[in-house]
Structures are given as structure tokens and as C-alpha cells.
Design a protein around this nucleic acid. Structure first.
Lengths: 251, 251
DNA sequence: CCGATTTTGTTCTCACGTTCACAAGCTCCT
DNA sequence: AGGAGCTTGTGAACGTGAGAACAAAATCGG
């Protein structure tokens, strides 16, 4: 351990490798950009080049990279291969993470077939479903197994990441089982808010939310005129009997 | 138009219906929570109830809702149906938005079959692909059509939202065609940074980025010991010939 | 009719994230 | 060897978002 390079008294006291969440979310983008540059045979790139490839501005990119350390050479730029390795190591994709996918419907199928699984760094070790009609089905070079085998598989393959592609209904129960089995990171595609204990990370991908955000902006663009005028009282047309207002539900 | 209700001189001057982006991103979550409460027969809910259902804290929820107006009754709470309608209207899902999906691979198939397409508010009007082997295939109650028909379809159905589920390669070209045809909102599943002109909104969903973010936190949890020590010089082992350092790329 | 109770809407403060601007440091040319 | 020219890394200003706390308004009981 180097003795904390030039820790000034007034420095932001970024606690021992604490990288801001916003930066963490961009590192994979930089990694992909670097891989693309590398594949094009580019050996060195400036922050400006990288920023363009990643779709951000160069000041932000430099600040983000500065949290990792001082890779990069002033007056020259960044060595593409070197930086790529450093970011991959920081993210943790120099090792392989074992992943299980639970819920082999349309989306589960699609993810199971997702060749390369993005960049390397992840290995699907099991496709699970509770439906007997699906168990045994061959997908790519894998076979769908019974969700009941979850605990066994997690323990055997040291699985730390679970992907939930079930419908909304069973999602929380599946989530609880994953957590109980020892999975500590979950990627949720089901349209529900899952609750997990502290220490478990959860991320959500939700198609319909993304579309609704687009719709909001789209509505703005189509001129404010398109907005139906607000009925200020709850006299809603096609809705089943509303109590005039209030009325107090037994909470 | 009401003359700007009680605009104080020192007020934040939130420009005429400018809702913060962070709030916009949460409105669909509130909408879903309200729909769930409604389906359970709950007629009135407090900010605390709603916040729990949506997975946020109640102060944030109240502040978010306050940007929409003063729906809600002090001492009582919010009328579920009324608030649900107001949010739906604000987002713009009281009308139906026409959507095309381009790229009918595994993911495209999955989205095409996504029944209900989240909540209502969206209508898939075409599934497009350039591969002759796919054109004509029946998926649900739709048929895959030739990507060449894009312009015609967009014009005929007033399509404003496009979903890109092609591989990375053709994504930018597909994007350009969509924009040229008049689409002004794009949801991109391809692992590339797309560039679009001003006035076009774009959102990205990226499985491998989400997994990498999880991996980063996972690595943190597994104890810092797991971090391989940093090679401070670019002496990278299994990589093809690196110029010692620098060497200046022609940029 | 009035006070107690409940819950919203809003104000204030703090933390986080973004962008600007520039000094430090490296390379290359003369 | 020394200066010119780039490009990084970072300090500082600015804007946005989150959370605590409280005043305003509505209901309910006496």
C-alpha cells in the first residue's frame, strides 16, 4: 500500500476507494468504448476522443477516471489497452461472475440466448423455472432446470448474481428465495418494487417505465395544446363510483 | 389559462410545467403503485402508504406530486383513482402512442409478445426487420414486415416512438432512418451510443451495463482482499504487442 | 361552534453531480 | 538543453436532488 498519495488536509476525503455512484454507472460505458477503439487498432486516445466515443463530455470523463487513479499521460492521452484493463479490474470483470436466470418466459429465453452475454465477465450457470412444462427444455447449450434446485446450484457454483425474469406475481417470492440461498445482487425485470435486506444490491430494468418517460417528453413536444384541460374536481367520467371526496379508508 | 396561481416574487420560478427529470422518472412508478392499490379496492391512501408501495420515502413522494398540482386532501390523503388519472394524464398515457419495433431477434420477439405492453398507453403498430427470412413470420397477432416499409408506416400511423432491438452493428443506421422518417423518441436496446439530432429523445437499456454495475458492488462486498494488486506499469500479460507507452496515434 | 388530530404542501439546508477553467507535467522541436 | 504546445488532473463555482421540519388546511369529537 502506498501511503495515500498526497492526501491534502482540505481534500474531499473520498473514503478509501469510494467511487461516486454516478461514475460507477458510466465505467461500463467507457469500457465498451475502449474495447471498440482497441478493436479498431487505436493504441492511444485523448480524453476528448474517449468522451466522444462514450457520449459524454471530456471534463466529466477525466473526473471519472481520476477516481480510479492517475492512468493517462499529460500531453499524450490514455493507453487504450492499459486503461481498459484498469477499468475492467475496477469493475470486477477480470474475473467471471456466476449468474442464474429465473423465469424462462419470452424474456428469459432472449437473455439465455444473448450470446457473449455482453462483454465477458459473466457466466450463466443455470436457467430456472417452476413450470414443469419448461423444465428440461434445451436453450442453446443449456437445459432449463427446476427452480427447486436453486439452493443447491447457488452453493455449488458460488452464484452471487440472480436475474429475475418472472411475471410480477411470483417475483418477490423468487427474490426472497434467491437472497436466502445466498445471492447478494439481483437484476429485476419484473414490474414490481422488490424489497430486500440490507447488503443486497438490486437494480431494476423496466420497459414500460422507459416508454412512459419517453411519452412524457413526447407529449411536451407535440405542443402544449395537446394537453387535455384539467378537471379540477374528481368528476371522472368512465370510472366506477367514487366517494364524493375523502371518506377515509380504514388504513 | 389561470394566471399562475400565487406566483411569489421569490418562488423557484419553475418554468411553466417544468417537472424535474428525477421526478418524471418516478411518476410511472407511482402510477403503477396506484393501479395496484386501486385493484385492491383501496379508495384513499396517504403519502406514507403510497411511498411504501412505490419504494420511496414519503417526503420525496409529496414533493414529486406537488409539481403536478395540489391533488390530495390535508388530513385525509389522496383519492387513488383521481390521482391515478392525473398522473396518467401528466405522463401522457391517457392517449395511445404508436410504437414500432425494429430488429426481431430474440429480444424483439420477447417485446412483441410482451402482453399488455406494460400498462396501457402504447400500441405496437409494426414489427420490422431487414432479414428476408424473418419477414412474414407471425408473432402473436402481428406479422413481421420489411424494414423498407418504415417511412410509409410511420407516416400512416403517426408513429412517434421507435424501439431498436437490432445488434450493435446496424443500430446507428436504423436510428438515422427512424429519425428521418419522423420518429422523435427512441428506446435503444443495442449496446452502442447512438447519436441523434436535437429534439429527439433517446433512452438506453443495457443488460450488460446493469450487470457490470452489480459486479462492481459485488466485488466490494467480497472483501477488498479479492482485489488483485495493481500493476503500476503497462506490462500487461496476455495482450498483443503494446507500444512501450505513448507513440501518438494519428488523430 | 371550537379545539385536537391528522396529513398535505412547502421551505430550508445539505449532499451530490456537473461543468469550467487552469496549473502541472509530458513530449517534441529547434 | 530549453522553450513551445498539448493534454491530464483537479480546485472551485454552479445547479439539481434529497430529506428534515413545519405551517396550513381539512376532518372529527365534544
Amino acid at each position: 500500500m502506498t501511503p495515500a498519495r498526497s492526501r491534502r488536509p482540505g481534500a474531499p476525503t473520498r473514503t478509501e476507494r469510494g467511487i461516486p455512484e454516478a461514475t460507477v454507472a458510466r465505467l461500463p460505458v467507457y469500457l465498451r468504448a475502449l474495447t471498440a477503439l482497441s478493436d479498431s487498432g487505436i493504441a492511444t486516445a485523448s480524453s476528448e476522443d474517449l468522451a466522444t466515443a462514450a457520449g459524454v463530455n471530456s471534463a466529466k470523463l477525466r473526473k471519472d477516471l481520476s477516481y480510479l487513479g492517475s492512468y493517462g499521460t499529460r500531453g499524450v492521452g490514455y493507453d487504450v489497452e492499459y486503461l481498459r484493463y484498469q477499468i475492467a479490474r475496477e469493475i470486477g470483470v477480470t474475473q467471471d461472475w456466476a449468474v442464474v436466470i429465473v423465469g424462462i418466459g419470452n424474456l428469459g429465453h432472449a437473455l439465455a440466448n444473448y450470446s457473449g452475454f455482453g462483454t465477458r465477465g459473466f457466466r450463466i450457470v443455470a436457467l430456472l423455472d417452476a413450470d414443469p412444462a419448461l423444465i428440461g427444455e434445451q436453450i442453446g447449450d443449456m437445459v432449463v432446470r427446476d427452480f427447486a434446485e436453486l439452493e443447491e446450484i447457488v452453493a455449488a457454483d458460488r452464484v452471487s448474481i440472480g436475474v429475475i425474469t418472472t411475471p410480477a406475481g411470483p417475483a418477490q417470492e423468487v427474490c426472497d428465495r434467491l437472497v436466502a440461498a445466498g445471492v447478494t445482487s439481483i437484476l429485476n425485470f419484473a414490474p414490481v418494487v422488490l424489497s430486500v435486506p440490507d447488503g443486497v444490491d438490486i437494480r431494476k430494468v423496466d420497459l414500460s417505465i422507459e416508454l412512459q418517460i419517453l411519452a412524457y417528453h413526447e407529449q411536451r413536444k407535440s405542443g402544449e395544446a395537446a394537453l387535455p384541460e384539467v378537471p379540477e374536481l374528481p368528476a371522472i367520467n368512465g370510472l366506477p363510483g367514487l366517494p364524493s371526496v375523502g371518506g377515509g379508508v380504514g388504513a
